[in-house]
Amino acid sequence: MIMLRSIGINFAKASPYLRTVRFNSTGSQALNWVEYLALKKQGRRINVTASVLTGLAGAGLTLNGLANIEIDPEKPIMGFDPLYVLIGGIMLGGFVGYLVGPVIGTPLFNLKNRAVLHEYKIKDKIFLERIKQNRVNPTSQSLANPVPDYYGERIYSLKDYRQWLRDCNAFRRKSREFL
């Protein structure tokens, strides 16, 4: 049974995906947790930036398209004031553009970090398994005791991870004591 203490995974019992990991001494160094979390933060920032830019582009393209349509301001469109319909259309175009952002941001992140992408994906799989193991049962949540970040989406540093673990333990303690 192979056990790596630094990451806490028993490879004999791990999923087949994790058993195929090769550790080469001649290859690049394995990604540590600090580097992984920094890459995770970078990927999130790239996706949000791409979403904002594509949202603005979508709203601009919609505005450009609607500006070329001749509309009678006194005649309602489907029973609504034409100004409201135009504003709603521009907002819808911006929202659709915002949703397209990660479709552009994720390949940019993968292209930028292609040298460590394989190790990043392995570390991501291990991280998500740790989140699954340590997250709380949300059935006992309330307004006074909300669930702490169920999917671990806001964990971008070891400090954030430790705080998330403390929050999960506090949630468990409160749900045991008050229910």
Rank of each mutant, 00 (worst) to 15 (best):
Q42H: 12
Q42M: 07
R44D: 11
R44Q: 08
I46L: 12
N47L: 10
N47R: 10
V48M: 12
V48G: 03
T49E: 04
T49I: 13
A50M: 13
V52G: 00
L53G: 00
T54W: 08
G55I: 02
L56E: 03
L56D: 00
G58E: 05
G58W: 00
G58Y: 01
A59R: 08
A59E: 10
G60N: 11
G60L: 15
L61I: 14
L61H: 00
L61Y: 09
L61Q: 07
L63R: 09
L63V: 05
L63S: 14
N64V: 05
N64W: 15
N64F: 14
G65R: 06
L66M: 15
L66I: 05
L66R: 01
L66V: 02
A67P: 04
A67I: 00
A67Q: 11
N68A: 13
N68S: 11
I69C: 04
I69S: 02
E70Y: 01
I71S: 05
I71P: 02
I71H: 06
D72L: 08
E74Q: 12
K75R: 14
P76I: 09
P76L: 05
P76V: 04
I77V: 15
I77E: 07
M78W: 08
M78A: 13
G79W: 03
F80S: 09
D81G: 09
D81W: 09
P82D: 02
L83P: 00
L83I: 13
Y84S: 11
V85S: 04
V85D: 08
L86S: 09
L86E: 08
I87T: 13
I87D: 09
I87M: 15
G89E: 06
G89S: 14
M91T: 03
L92K: 12
L92N: 01
G93P: 14
G94I: 01
G94M: 04
F95C: 09
F95W: 15
V96K: 12
V96N: 12
V96G: 06
G97K: 03
G97Q: 12
Y98M: 14
Y98A: 13
L99A: 04
L99I: 09
L99W: 07
L99Q: 05
V100D: 02
V100F: 10
G101Q: 03
G101N: 04
P102G: 01
P102Y: 06
P102I: 11
P102C: 08
I104V: 15
I104F: 14
I104S: 03
G105V: 07
G105T: 05
T106Q: 13
T106W: 06
T106D: 10
L108M: 15
F109Q: 02
F109K: 01
F109R: 01
K112I: 14
K112N: 07
K112Y: 11
N113Y: 15
N113Q: 03
R114T: 10
V116R: 15
V116Q: 14
H118Y: 06
H118W: 04
E119W: 01
E119K: 11
I122R: 13
I122Y: 14
K123D: 10
K123T: 13
D124A: 08
D124Y: 07
D124N: 09
K125M: 06
I126A: 07
L128E: 03
L128P: 00
L128N: 13
L128Q: 14
